[in-house]
């Protein structure tokens, strides 16, 4: 029996836009509920702080070099993708939260601080799309 490597999930951790909050919530839903055996969260700030000599996230960077990694982008700046590309190579896939938000205009999050019922439903929808991508990569 072969053991398949886990897939890294690195989500926008921005605080300035609702996309950041949704990215984080969706990533946690994937890793805790939808695909707990196949995925692992890579901490974005730790990843960016990097460098073992600085007690930073070298483990995160090395993981993303050797494992398929999905970036979840909260806005058009693509900070997670830039970080992974800079330090570990191109990510295996990128999910754009704002594009998924447009598909569900009826699900309006309450605020950045508190997603509310509709915001959590939207996070579940985003998580489902991430899980689909996980399956595609895992079954390759």
């Amino acid at each position: 029996m072969s053991i398949k490597p886990k897939i890294g999930i690195i989500a926008c951790s921005g605080e300035n836009k609702i996309g950041g909050t949704l990215s984080r919530a969706a990533a946690r839903i994937v890793v805790e509920k939808l695909r707990p055996d196949n995925t692992i969260i890579l901490c974005q700030p730790l990843f960016m702080a990097g460098g073992l000599e600085r007690h930073g996230g070298q483990e995160e960077r090395d993981f993303a070099k050797t494992h398929p990694t999905i970036t979840i982008e909260g806005c058009e700046e693509e900070c997670a993708k830039i970080a992974v590309s800079n330090y570990s190579g191109p990510p295996a896939a990128t999910i754009y939260v704002e594009e998924i938000m447009k598909k569900y205009p009826e699900l309006q999050p309450k605020s950045k601080r508190e997603l509310g019922v509709n915001g959590m439903k939207l996070a579940e929808k985003i998580a489902e799309e991430i899980a689909k991508k996980v399956d595609e990569l895992y079954n390759k």
Binding site: C12, S13, G14, E15, N16, G20, Q44, P45, M48, E77, E78, C79, A80, I82, A83
Partner: peptide
């Protein structure tokens, strides 16, 4: 003002 950490890094 909030200085967004991922944005700063990027």
């Amino acid at each position: 003002v909030l200085i967004c950490l991922p944005a700063l890094a990027a």
